[in-house]
């Protein structure tokens, strides 16, 4: 694998029936590229959590995945309400998900903590009323 590959996904608003499709597609492609299974798992978990967050909190958005020989970069950009308190949002167990979302098995307050845990580097840029961009990297061992 020597070339850079870029994948782009539109994440629909409030569409839980399609949530996870982007992550599943990336996982399938990485497996086909023989990326090591641990990195594939990390990308799948981190991206799925981000994808679900976009559906729950941000009216959808766009995910761009760049696959380089040494790194997989996921950029999740939305035009949602922004995160008022990142430190609080990063606390395991803290959630602002509504009841209908909790009924689906989400809202455990594990989304952002899982994204941080399963990526090797994570950066959150957010502005209230404008949106949030989360950039996550998973490094590939040489």
């Amino acid at each position: 694998m020597s070339d850079t590959i870029t994948l782009k996904y539109d994440v629909s608003t409030d569409d839980f029936t399609r949530a996870g499709e982007a992550s599943s597609d990336v996982k399938r492609k990485l497996k086909n590229m023989n990326v090591n299974p641990e990195a594939v798992r990390k990308v799948a978990i981190a991206m799925y959590e981000g994808e679900i967050n976009m559906v729950i909190h941000a009216n959808g958005g766009v995910i761009t995945v760049t696959i380089d020989p040494d790194c997989i970069t996921m950029i999740l950009a939305d035009k949602g309400p922004g995160i008022p308190d990142i430190a609080k949002a990063m606390q395991a167990g803290y959630s602002t998900a509504p009841d209908n979302v909790r009924d689906l098995g989400f809202g455990a307050g594990m989304g952002l903590p899982n994204m941080k845990k399963y990526s090797d580097d994570m950066k959150i840029e957010t502005e209230l009323g404008v949106g949030t961009t989360v950039t996550m990297k998973v490094f590939l061992a040489a």
Binding site: F16, A19, A44, L104
Partner: peptide, 14 residues
């Protein structure tokens, strides 16, 4: 006990 479409997504991702 969760039988929705997201359960299937999690199964296939894990």
């Amino acid at each position: 006990v969760m039988g929705n479409i997201n359960t299937l997504a999690v199964l296939s991702l894990t």
